[in-house]
């Protein structure tokens, strides 16, 4: 019996070990970036990337903060689109989800079909690109960065399901008290739906924050580069650093590799913190199917 328990314990222990190793594999690549950002440029070139800085240095960050215009600007663009975009997106999606959840809404069936049928097809990049650039003409504006994520039909589905499950008595009571439908939505339905709203808001915010494709398609003006796109530009063209921002004047002086890694750390930091703080909402979103 004792050997049984020992075997059991060993089994458990090895499972913990395997999962822990897999979990560390998820973190290590990010540590690699963090470590590189704190490494001396010459040491990085000579002895390569490693998990512990071969020669500790903060010069990459100093370089960025000495003339931070480009990254501060990109931060401003990313924060603005994330905050404003998320507020607008969650508001219009929850209004639609709420309306579609009302049992007495006469247009409920046809509008639900109109909305959810779009989940089956995807016109793709070409018509989307032509729509944005030739018809809406939003290229090189801040709207171009926000418009694409205003409605995610899957999130509307989740919100509708949540609103439909809210207790009807509260809403009826408010109606008897003479509150208008919009006020009922604002003062009763929205506060009750906070968990669902938080989940959707979080996913939307992460979509905005991590978005670089929209800028790749529609933004040519360096003033409007969001953070992730700035990272991409710097990566794809190390010289872009000099051209766009004036971080460093002489390429010989710029610790390019480490600066790039430091930029990646600065761009990922907020998203990673976001993730850690709101993890439970994310897990709920995953089980609801918000992440496809």
């Amino acid at each position: 019996m004792d050997t049984d328990r020992l075997m059991n314990w060993i089994g458990r222990f090895s499972i913990h070990l395997v999962v822990l190793i897999l979990g560390l594999c998820c973190l290590i690549p990010l540590l690699l970036i963090l470590s590189a950002s704190f490494t001396d440029e010459i040491a990085l070139t000579r002895s390569g990337y490693s998990l512990i800085p071969s020669q500790f240095s903060t010069s990459a960050y100093e370089m960025i903060f000495r003339s931070p215009q480009a990254i501060v600007r990109a931060y401003a663009v990313s924060i603005f689109t994330t905050v404003v975009g998320t507020i607008i997106a969650v508001f219009i999606m929850s209004m639609l989800g709420y309306a579609l959840s009302r049992p007495t809404f006469v247009l409920r069936k046809p509008l639900s079909l109109f909305v959810f049928f779009t989940m089956l097809f995807n016109g793709g990049l070409v018509p989307y690109y032509i729509l944005m650039t030739q018809y809406l003409r939003v290229q090189d504006t801040i709207f171009a960065l926000m418009l694409p994520y205003f409605v995610v039909v899957y999130y509307v589905l989740i919100l509708r399901t949540y609103f439909a499950a809210l207790p009807g008595e509260l809403i009826d009571a408010a109606r008897v008290d003479g509150a208008g439908e919009f006020r009922i939505f604002l003062t009763i339905a929205l506060p009750l739906a906070k968990p669902a709203l938080a989940t959707i808001a979080l996913f939307t915010a992460l979509n905005y924050w991590n978005d670089w494709t929209t800028a790749l398609y529609f933004i040519r003006d360096p003033q409007l580069y969001p953070l992730q796109y700035l990272l991409y530009i710097i990566q794809s063209n190390a010289q872009a650093m000099q051209l766009q921002s004036g971080v460093g004047v002489n390429l010989g002086e710029v610790p390019t590799q480490t600066t790039r890694m430091a930029m990646a750390v600065l761009a990922t930091g907020p998203a990673a913190l976001f993730f850690l703080f709101f993890q439970r909402y994310l897990v709920r979103g995953v089980t609801l199917g918000a992440f496809k």
Binding site: I33, A36, A267, A271
Partner: peptide, 18 residues
């Protein structure tokens, strides 16, 4: 295990390069 899905592909490209 969940964290990687919330890292942007740009940053993934960075560490793959590293």
């Amino acid at each position: 295990l969940l964290l990687p899905r919330f890292i942007s592909w740009v940053v993934v490209g960075y560490f793959v390069y590293a």
